[in-house]
């Protein structure tokens, strides 16, 4: 009896804490449905007539759609290239490990130790000279580089979970490496590849440092859009909230899908 009361109390406390953590997001969502006047009302309005005007105003903002399109192209493009490069590498390390495999994995992880700001000057100068400043290609390259170690590690850790005997059996049947990867590993590891790709998309979508510093009018992603939008229009809370909701919603959705494998990816397999 006492125990069930205690566990009910724990459940209540857990729900309260979880909602408290999520509250700023919920409050942003609420604000997005207010008029500008209602958004800054004191005391804050809890009961109000929801309007969609702020969403219309935010999306009508010059360039909003192209920023959104840039976010989609950059995050998908960077992820596609990262997975294409990582897939064979992870295959080789998982199924044909050699003396150098472990050192290689650690070295790949070590490339994450370069803080973006340590590469800012050279990347800026190179991009300026080859005309990659403010281009989607430039952002795709950088996001791909930032995510590649993580994608390789995550794929590697998923591949290790696949029994090698299955691939071995195919080899006996005279299947070559390419066929093995394409017809066996790809379908077998599909859920793992999907989780990896989702995490890479999320990270690229939210990437702000390069997007803010290397883009202007053409290739900016939504992170850059929100940052710039906030400067002259910071007082329009409802509009800003609506724009933010639209920028965050897809990733919140993706995030809830890949939640289970998030830890494996973010800790490079150190915690499973």
């Amino acid at each position: 009896m006492q125990r069930s009361f205690l566990s009910r109390l724990t459940g209540l406390a857990a729900w309260f804490a979880a909602l408290l953590i999520a509250f700023p997001i919920i409050w942003m969502l609420v604000t997005a449905f207010k008029t500008e006047r209602a958004a800054i009302a004191v005391p804050p309005l809890l009961i109000f007539k929801p309007v969609l005007g702020s969403f219309a105003a935010a999306t009508a903002q010059t360039g909003y759609l192209s920023f959104a399109l840039n976010s989609i192209i950059v995050s998908l493009g960077a992820t596609l290239f990262a997975v294409i490069i990582a897939f064979p590498a992870a295959y080789a390390m998982a199924f044909r490990p050699g003396r150098h495999t472990q050192g290689l994995l650690i070295w790949m992880l070590s490339t994450k130790m370069l803080p973006p700001v340590g590469a800012l000057v050279p990347v800026y100068l190179i991009y300026r000279d080859v005309g990659l400043l403010d281009t989607r290609t430039g952002l795709i390259i950088l996001n791909m580089l930032m995510n590649l170690p993580l994608v390789i590690w995550m794929l590697f850790s998923f591949f290790k979970d696949i029994p090698a005997a299955i691939l071995e059996a195919a080899l006996v049947d005279g299947v070559n490496t390419r066929q093995q990867m394409q017809h066996l590993l790809l379908p077998l590891a599909a859920p793992g590849i999907a989780s990896t790709a989702l995490l890479s998309i999320i990270l690229a979508w939210n990437e702000s440092f390069w997007s803010i510093n290397l883009t202007a009018a053409h290739a900016g992603t939504l992170a850059a859009f929100i940052t710039r939008f906030s400067q002259p229009e910071g007082l329009f809370w409802a509009k800003l909230s609506a724009a933010s909701v639209l920028a965050v919603a897809p990733v919140l959705l993706f995030g809830s899908l890949t939640q289970r494998h998030l830890v494996r990816g973010l800790t490079f397999g150190a915690v499973k």
């Binding site: 909602l19 999520a22 702000s208 992170a223 929100i226 965050v248 990733v251 993706f254 995030g255």
Partner: peptide
């Protein structure tokens, strides 16, 4: 709910 802030981009 508890992990949702992780998915919010820094400027937002």
């Amino acid at each position: 709910f508890a992990i949702s802030p992780f998915f919010v981009m820094p400027p937002v």
